[in-house]
Amino acid sequence: MDLINILKHRHTTKAYDKERKIPAPIAAQLLESLRYSPSSVNSQPWHFFVADNDAGKARIAKATSGPFAFNAPRVMDASHVVVLSARNSLPADYLQTLADQEQADGRYANEEARALAHKGRSGFVGLHEQAGDVPTWTQKQTYIAQGFLLLSAALLGVDATPMEGFDASILSTELGLAEKGLSPAVIVALGYHSDADFNASLPKSRLPEKSVFSHI
């Protein structure tokens, strides 16, 4: 695997081949890349809505109307579309669910270790609650998951389009996000680009190394 070559050639896809579908084993790996993404204190403060058929994609595309209409074909023509949403709060019962899952997965040597981990995570969440920035924090964590999805797609030869160009209120209503305690963060379309994707052949453009790195 040549990671640098992959990074240089992945791109934000502008047009998809509607007839090409992501094979089920590849799609399953992409979803696992989201589930296994890292998050602060293993909070996993997200939920992912996946559309792999026209009806599901049409629901998401409702949010790409008006000034965001340019994204509608990317949603409808892609093989799969994922809405990455972030939790608005991390209540005690959710934190307990995390602790129970970690226990089931064998992460604790004993009850003392479990109690210490749970106390530490709850305390860290409490700091964000005091600061009043829990939704901002969970959105940041959800963007980590997006990064893992985009890189995983590139490694598996799948094209992707991250999109912030959508009406959050429309999407929230369509998916009932507020009732679920969630807010939309970003939409990612996945599939294979078509010949109409002008961005596929353009050279990558990034600022030079010396302008983005400082070795201290």
Rank of each mutant, 00 (worst) to 15 (best):
M1G: 15
M1N: 11
L3F: 14
N5Y: 05
K8E: 13
R10F: 10
H11M: 08
Y16R: 12
D17W: 13
K18P: 00
P23W: 00
A27V: 02
A27P: 00
L31M: 13
E32P: 06
S33M: 03
L34S: 00
S37I: 06
S39I: 09
V41D: 06
P45M: 13
W46L: 10
F48E: 09
F49G: 08
D52R: 08
D52S: 12
D54A: 15
A55M: 06
G56T: 12
K57G: 07
K57W: 07
R59N: 00
A61L: 07
A61W: 03
K62W: 10
A63P: 01
A63Y: 01
T64Y: 01
S65H: 03
P67R: 11
A69R: 04
P73E: 03
V75W: 02
D77Y: 09
S79K: 09
H80V: 14
H80Q: 14
V81G: 01
V83L: 12
V83R: 04
L84G: 03
A86Q: 08
S89D: 15
P91S: 03
T97Q: 07
L98K: 09
L98W: 02
E102V: 00
A104N: 10
D105I: 00
Y108Q: 04
Y108V: 04
R114Y: 07
R114I: 08
R114S: 13
A115P: 04
S122T: 15
H128A: 05
H128P: 05
Q130L: 14
A131E: 10
T136C: 04
Q141R: 07
I144M: 14
Q146S: 08
F148E: 13
L149F: 06
L149Q: 06
L150K: 08
L151Y: 10
L151D: 08
G157M: 12
D159T: 12
P162N: 08
M163V: 01
E164W: 02
E164F: 10
T173D: 15
G176P: 01
E179H: 03
K180N: 14
A185W: 00
A196H: 05
D197N: 07
F198M: 07
F198L: 13
A200S: 15
K204A: 15
P208Q: 11
E209V: 07
V212D: 06
F213Y: 15
H215Y: 10
H215Q: 07
